[in-house]
Design a protein around this nucleic acid. Structure first.
Length: 648
RNA sequence: GCCGGCGUAGCUCAGUUGGUAGAGCAGCUGAUUUGUAAUCAGCAGGUCAUCAGUUCGAGUCUGUUCGCCGGCUCCA
C-alpha cells in the first residue's frame, strides 16, 4: 500500500499508510490524544478526524487547547442545540449557528420567543443527545438538490443561504436525527461535549438587517471538561465585579438617573476628581505639544448645521431645534463647525499651518434607547476633540505626528493593547479619488512608521474621508472605540476654507478630526474596568486616608491632612469613633491607595504607619518621608499592579 | 427602534397559591476610645418605577408609559 509522509508540528516526519485518518494518527501518538482530539489540521486546513490523508502533508491534531479546535467544538455544539430546538419546537426554522469568541449561537425563526424555561428544556434535551454519543458524518449534495430539499421542508433561510453560495457541491453534516447544511468540520462524536450551558436568548435580525425578520438567537458555551465550564462561569462573575456600572456605584464615581434622563451622566465628587486629573493632564500635554486650546458654545444657529451638512445627513442623531427670537438654534452633536468658523474668522498663510485646535467639547447626540450602556454609550458626552488644518504637502507628517501623540496619551493612562483599523474609501464618497489615495497612504504610512499592528477595513471609511480607529479592550473582552483620526474632504469644501500659499494662490487646507480618549465618559468607563477601580495614585479620587486609632489623635491627624493638602495630595481624615479595623475596612472598600494609621507612637515621632491598599502595612515613615514617597509615585503616574482575572 | 428579562428603603436583596411590607449594610442618636478589613444599643427610613384595569381586596394578575439589564442594529 502507498505511504504518505506526515509532518508533525514538532518537525518530525513519519510515514503512514495512504488514507490514514486524523483519528488513527491521533491514536498512534497516544490513546489520551485520541480521546481529546477534536479535528485535524491538514495542509493548513481544518478537517474532520475521519478525513483520509492521501498525500504527504503537514498534519496537526487539534484539541480544545487550539483556537481552531475550540471553534469546531462550539460549532458542533450549536448543531446539537439546533437538534434539541427542532425536536422540541418542530416549527423552528434554522438560520445560522456559528462559533463566537466564547461559545456559539444559533438563530431560529420561531412563532414565540424562547423563555428561560424553554432554555432549560432545550438544555435537558441536549444532554440526552450528547448521551447518545452519536457520530457526526458528512455528505455531499449538489446545489439544486439541496435547494429542493430545504424548500420542501420550508427552511427558507437555508434556501436563501444556498442560493447565495457558489456552484460547487455543498456538504451536509448529520448526527443523531439531525442534519444541517454546513461547511464543517465537526467533532467526531456528540459525547465529547462534557459540559455546556445556554447563556441567554435574544432577538437578532436575519443577516443583521433591521428591515428583515427578527429571529430568536440562543447563546451557549460548551467544554470538554466540567471544570472548564465552572471556570468560565466564575470568570463571568469576576468580570461582572469589574463592570464600570457596579464599581461606579460602589465607589460613588457617577450616577445616571431617570430624573435627569437616560444617557446623561452625573459626575459625583469622587468621579469628578478623577475627571479633573484626566482633563488637567490632557490640557498640559496638549499645550506642551503645540496645540492651542479653544472653547465653543453648546448651541449654534441652525444655519451653521445646514451649511456643515449635519442637519441633513446627521439629523437622526440630533435633538430638535430650540427657538430663540424667531431663529432656530441647534444643540451641538459635533464640535467641527465651531472650529471651522474660528478658522474663517481671519485669513491664514501657509506659514501659519498646521493649526492644531483642541477642545474638550461636550456634544449631545440622540441615541436609540436600547443602545445606551453605562458610561460607554451615552447621550451627552465630552469629546477630547481636535482639528488639524494642514497644507497639502504636510499631511503625512502631520498624521504620523498625531498617531505618535495618540499612543503617548493612551500609554500614559496605562493602555498599550489596541485593535487598530484603517478604514478606506466607501462606495459612496465625496472628494477627489486622488486625494483619497493620498490620505489613505498617509494614514497607512503613519501606521507603518509607528510599528503598530493594524488591519484594513476596506470601504468602511466615512463618506467624507478615510480614518484610523483605535479600540481599547475592557475587562469583559468588549473592545471600545476610543481614539479616532479622521480625514475630512467635505467640510473644508462646504465652508470654502482657504489659506494663501507661498505662490500667493488661495489653496484649500486638509482637515483632520481627531479624538484621543474618544469621549471622557467612555474613556472613564474603560479606565474603571481596566483598573477594576484600583486607580493609579495620580488618578485616585482620595489618595490618602488618615486614620487615628483613637479620638485623642484627631488633632495630630488633622495637621497631617493639612500638610498633605498643601503638597497637593488628596487626603482626608476619618475621625469617627470607630475601631481602627472599621476605619481600615471603610478605606479598603473605597480602594483608597494609601492609609496612614496614627496612634501614640506615630504622633510622638511626627510619623505615620503606612498601609497600602490590597497589600497591608508597609511600615512607619516620617511625614516628610511619606510625602516624598507619595509624590514620587504620583509623578511617575505609575501603573498600579492589577489582580488578574482568574483564568486569564 | 426591535426581541426577551427586570424595576420593593440610599445600597444589596427577601416577600409563599392575591389578604394591610421585611433583613443586612449605609444614615441618625447614645454608649464605647479602640493598633491594621465590620464595637454595642436604640431610632428613623417605602404612594412596592408610573398610570390605568381585573378583584371585596393587587408588591403579587393584565395593559400603558418611563427606566435598567442581555442581545440585534448603530456609534465616541
Amino acid at each position: 500500500m502507498a505511504q504518505v509522509q506526515i509532518q508533525f508540528p514538532d518537525g518530525s516526519v513519519r510515514p503512514y499508510d495512504s488514507g490514514t485518518t486524523g483519528y488513527e494518527i491521533a491514536k498512534s501518538i497516544s490513546p489520551r490524544l485520541a480521546k481529546v482530539a477534536i479535528a485535524v489540521m491538514v495542509n493548513g486546513r481544518v478537517r474532520d478526524l475521519s478525513y483520509p490523508i492521501s498525500s504527504d502533508a503537514p498534519v496537526g491534531i487539534l484539541t480544545f487547547d487550539d483556537a481552531a479546535g475550540r471553534e469546531v467544538f462550539w460549532h458542533s455544539s450549536s448543531h446539537i442545540m439546533a437538534q434539541a430546538v427542532q425536536e422540541l419546537f418542530p416549527d423552528a426554522k434554522l438560520a445560522i449557528g456559528p462559533p463566537i469568541d466564547e461559545g456559539w449561537y444559533y438563530d431560529f425563526d420561531v412563532k414565540k420567543p424562547f423563555s428561560p424555561d424553554d432554555l432549560a428544556k432545550i438544555e435537558k434535551r441536549m444532554g440526552e443527545i450528547i448521551a447518545e454519543d452519536a457520530t457526526f458524518s458528512c455528505e455531499e449534495r449538489d446545489k439544486q438538490a439541496a435547494i429542493d430539499h430545504y424548500r420542501e421542508k420550508g427552511e427558507d433561510y437555508k434556501v436563501e443561504l444556498i442560493e447565495d453560495l457558489g456552484d460547487e457541491a455543498l456538504t451536509f453534516y448529520a448526527h443523531s436525527r439531525f442534519e444541517d447544511l454546513c461547511r464543517g468540520p465537526h467533532i467526531p462524536r456528540t459525547g465529547i461535549v462534557k459540559a455546556f450551558k445556554l447563556i441567554t436568548s435574544s432577538g437578532a435580525y436575519w443577516r443583521g438587517d433591521e428591515k428583515r425578520p427578527m429571529l430568536q438567537r440562543i447563546y451557549g458555551v460548551s467544554y470538554p471538561k466540567k471544570g472548564m465550564l465552572d471556570e468560565y462561569l466564575h470568570r463571568l462573575e469576576e468580570a461582572k465585579k469589574r463592570d464600570h456600572r457596579v464599581i461606579g456605584k460602589q465607589l460613588e464615581l457617577f450616577t445616571i438617573g431617570e430624573d435627569v434622563g437616560a444617557g446623561l451622566v452625573l459626575w459625583l465628587p469622587r468621579g469628578a476628581r478623577i475627571r479633573n486629573q484626566i482633563e488637567n493632564f490632557w490640557r498640559e500635554e496638549h499645550l506642551a505639544n503645540d496645540y492651542d486650546l479653544v472653547f465653543s458654545p453648546h448651541v449654534a444657529n441652525r444655519d451653521l448645521w445646514l451649511q456643515s451638512g449635519h442637519a441633513d445627513f446627521y439629523s437622526e442623531n440630533m435633538y430638535g431645534a430650540i427657538k430663540v427670537d424667531e431663529r432656530e438654534f441647534q444643540l451641538k452633536p459635533m464640535n467641527c463647525p465651531f472650529h471651522i468658523t474660528m478658522y474663517k474668522s481671519r485669513l491664514w498663510s501657509y506659514r501659519d499651518l498646521p493649526l492644531r485646535w483642541a477642545e474638550l467639547g461636550t456634544v449631545y447626540r440622540y441615541e436609540r434607547p436600547g443602545v445606551l450602556h453605562g458610561l460607554m454609550r451615552v447621550r451627552g458626552f465630552t469629546q477630547d476633540d481636535a482639528h488639524h488644518f494642514v497644507a497639502r504637502d504636510h499631511m503625512e507628517d502631520e498624521l504620523v505626528w498625531i498617531l505618535d501623540f495618540c499612543v503617548h496619551m493612551l500609554k500614559s493612562f496605562g493602555f498599550s493593547d489596541y485593535n487598530i483599523f484603517l478604514s478606506t474609501r466607501p462606495e459612496k464618497a465625496i472628494g477627489d479619488p486622488e486625494d483619497w489615495k493620498k490620505a489613505e497612504k498617509g494614514l497607512q504610512s503613519a501606521l507603518e512608521r509607528s510599528g503598530l499592528p493594524y488591519s484594513i477595513d476596506e470601504g468602511e471609511g466615512a463618506f467624507y474621508g478615510p480614518k484610523i480607529d483605535i479600540q481599547i479592550k475592557d475587562a469583559i473582552g468588549r473592545a471600545w472605540q476610543c481614539s479616532t483620526i479622521q480625514f475630512d474632504f467635505s467640510l473644508p469644501e462646504r465652508f470654502d476654507m482657504v489659506y494663501t500659499d507661498s505662490d500667493g494662490q488661495k489653496k484649500r487646507p486638509f482637515m483632520i478630526h481627531r479624538a484621543l480618549l474618544g469621549s471622557v465618559e467612555r474613556f472613564f468607563g474603560v479606565l474603571i474596568e481596566h483598573y477594576a477601580g484600583n486607580f493609579p495614585l495620580w488618578l485616585a479620587p482620595t489618595q490618602v486616608k488618615v486614620l487615628p486609632i483613637a479620638d485623642e489623635f484627631n488633632e495630630y491627624c488633622a495637621k497631617v491632612v493639612d500638610r498633605l493638602k498643601k503638597e497637593n495630595i488628596r487626603a482626608s481624615l476619618d475621625s469617627r469613633s470607630e475601631k481602627i479595623g472599621a476605619k481600615i475596612r471603610a478605606a479598603e472598600v473605597l480602594k483608597v491607595p494609601y492609609m496612614f494609621v496614627v496612634g501614640g507612637r506615630e504622633a510622638e515621632a511626627d510619623s505615620v504607619a503606612v498601609r497600602k491598599h490590597g497589600t497591608g502595612d508597609i511600615g512607619v515613615k516620617t511625614v516628610d518621608e511619606a510625602v516624598a514617597f507619595l509624590k514620587a509615585e504620583i509623578e511617575s503616574r505609575g501603573i498600579v499592579e492589577q489582580p488578574e482575572l482568574s483564568g486569564n
